[in-house]
Simulated assay, not measured.
Amino acid sequence: MSEPASYSRTINLAFTGASGAQYGLRLLQCLVAAGCRVQVMVSRAAQVVMATETDLKLPGSPAAMQDALTDWAQAQPGQVLVFGREDWFAPPASGSGEKAPLVVCPCSTGTLSALATGASNNLIERAGDVALKERRQLILVPREAPFSEVHLENMLKLTRMGAVIMPASPGFYHKPASVEDLVDFIVARLLDHLGIDQDLMPRWGEGRVQAKLPD
């Protein structure tokens, strides 16, 4: 029997029903390429959005979804794990599970509300609740415009709890030439926050540093 593959890190990644499925999919691709194991959760609304915004139409069952995302991300068998919406025995559902960051990308305003109030009505919400109570890294990527007072209050509340709110608002100082460049801007920031090496784009000031280094 072959030994199970070893991975550099485990990252929890949740897709919810905001626009911007491309951000989460590109992040999944980069995490796989970086040698991470990715534990994925997908809401029903996220499946609808993903099918609308991309060519990827995920099947309904977690097992079939896992196979589809494994193929799409060119991952090794077992590198991408998909857990169902009410799989309360999944590692992200408990503080005694593996200590791993959680990225919700994209993060709907409904998910923001649920996390801010501790609703825990499904696995994604429970995983966020665990991340907050255990003081684990939690990064939320909302994609909405404009933000209402309720949205802003929820983001402020979550920030005070320790979450990082990273709106899907790409910059333009890197002179993007395509939609993919705009997506990579946000994904690069996410990878930086996770402490994962990335070459999607240079960090601010790197050119100045390189220019000052001796030959």
Rank of each mutant, 00 (worst) to 15 (best):
M1H: 10
E3S: 15
P4W: 12
S6C: 10
Y7F: 15
R9L: 04
I11A: 03
I11V: 15
N12G: 10
L13I: 02
L13S: 11
L13A: 00
L13R: 10
A14G: 15
A14H: 02
F15L: 10
A18G: 01
A18C: 06
A21P: 02
G24I: 08
L25R: 05
R26N: 06
R26P: 03
L31W: 01
A33E: 08
G35E: 12
G35F: 00
Q39C: 00
Q39R: 13
A45N: 05
V48H: 07
V49C: 14
M50Q: 09
M50E: 07
A51W: 00
D55K: 09
P59K: 00
A63Q: 10
A64W: 03
M65C: 12
D67I: 15
A68R: 12
L69W: 07
T70H: 10
D71T: 11
D71G: 09
W72M: 11
A73N: 13
A73S: 15
Q74T: 13
Q74W: 01
P77C: 05
P77K: 12
G84S: 12
R85M: 14
E86C: 01
W88P: 10
F89G: 07
S94M: 04
S96I: 09
G97I: 14
E98C: 14
K99R: 12
C105S: 12
T111A: 10
L115Y: 13
G118I: 14
A119E: 15
A119Q: 15
N121V: 08
E125F: 07
R126C: 11
A127E: 08
V130E: 13
L132S: 05
L132D: 03
Q137P: 01
Q137G: 04
Q137H: 11
L138Y: 01
L138V: 00
P142W: 03
E144N: 00
P146A: 03
V150Q: 15
H151A: 07
M155W: 08
A163D: 06
I165P: 04
I165G: 02
P167Q: 02
P167W: 11
A168I: 14
S169V: 09
G171F: 11
E180I: 07
V183Q: 14
F185E: 14
A188E: 03
A188F: 01
R189F: 00
L190F: 02
L190A: 01
L190T: 01
L190V: 10
D192T: 05
H193W: 12
M201Q: 14
W204L: 13
E206I: 08
A211H: 11
K212M: 11
P214S: 07
P214D: 03
D215N: 13
D215A: 12
D215T: 08
